[in-house]
């Protein structure tokens, strides 16, 4: 019996000391929390939970929390800056803030080049570091068109939404996955990617080359040769020339498709890309159709 009492008194002191210290520190913590607490706007937390949380930086802030606190503090009043979330997020943000939703114009990244290996050649064999930034430093890259896409995939590396794929030396944007965060726009050393309004029939001159027509013909089979036919065909004057390159003003364009019909090199394209598999199937179908047409024409010619 005596032994047990001794033992319990042995454990009592340490337990008391430990428990007492814990209690004391707990009181200190409560006091500090009471008197030194920082007033936090509950709105920030609420807004942050509404935002998608991918921290892509498409809004121009460091991340979702940055945008949320800017909105909550009234520093920024635009509720439709989240490109990754789109219309739904814009509406949810406006609802949380209790303001009227602003007009949301969805955008999409677009590669202003169609010069894949099918249409361009290589001037030299590049054996250096396989990225566009390095290759650009050596005679503007191995591509025959010095303005064209090199296809080493600097844009692919920065895309967090699996929206870019590289095929045959050319980058493509999957318009369904793209959130217009703009990372690829910065990453491209050739300045070939821009954000355009997301319209199903977006009509774009997919070329950024400023060489005169003769040089363009030599360099790329699908480049803009500055023939001005599209300017003449455009019913709303949305197209103008910039240093040997036709530029379509996306805000004026009415997507009538007249310029697409007259473009002799198919430099002007219509519609956004969806996905790699779909695109490949579409292209194969178009090729088969073209071949069938040619075969039919040939047969007709032979018959006559």
């Amino acid at each position: 019996m005596e032994l047990i009492v001794l033992q319990s008194s042995n454990i009592l002191m340490p337990a008391l000391i430990g428990g007492g210290t814990a209690l004391l520190l707990g009181i200190v913590i409560v006091l500090v929390f009471r008197f030194f607490s920082v007033e936090e706007d509950p709105m920030v937390e609420e807004l942050n939970s509404v935002l998608p949380g991918v921290n892509c930086g498409g809004c121009g802030y460091s991340g979702c929390l940055g945008y949320a606190s800017a909105l909550a503090s009234g520093e920024d009043s635009n509720t439709s800056k989240c490109t990754a979330g789109g219309l739904e997020t814009a509406e949810a943000v406006a609802l949380t803030l209790g303001t009227a939703p602003q007009e949301y114009i969805p955008q999409v990244a677009y590669v202003f080049c169609q010069g894949s290996g099918e249409y361009t050649t290589k001037r030299y064999e590049y054996t250096g570091t396989p990225n566009c930034a390095s290759a650009t430093g050596l005679f503007a890259g191995p591509n025959s068109c010095t303005y064209g896409c090199l296809g080493f995939g600097d844009c692919y590396d920065v895309c967090e939404f699996d929206a870019i794929w590289i095929d045959d030396g050319l980058a493509h944007v999957n318009s369904e996955n793209c959130t217009a965060c703009g990372k690829c726009v910065i990453a491209c050393p050739k300045d070939l990617i821009s954000l355009i309004p997301k319209h199903e029939l977006a009509t774009v001159n997919s070329c950024r080359n400023h060489w005169p027509a003769a040089a363009t013909r030599k360099n790329c089979k699908i480049g803009c040769i500055a023939c001005r036919l599209c300017i003449k065909a455009c019913p709303v004057d949305a197209i103008h020339m910039e240093d040997n390159l036709a530029v379509i003003d996306q805000e004026i364009c009415i997507h009538c498709g007249e310029c697409v019909k007259v473009c002799p090199t198919n430099s002007i394209s219509e519609g956004l890309l969806k996905g790699m598999a779909e695109e490949k199937a579409l292209r194969a179908a178009a090729k088969a159709e073209k071949e069938a047409e040619e075969a039919a024409a040939k047969a007709e010619k032979e018959a006559s």
């Binding site: 430093g137 890259g141 010095t146």
Partner: peptide
């Protein structure tokens, strides 16, 4: 006429 230099500038 214009051509490119080694650093890619025309």
């Amino acid at each position: 006429k214009k051509e490119i230099l080694s650093d890619g500038t025309p």
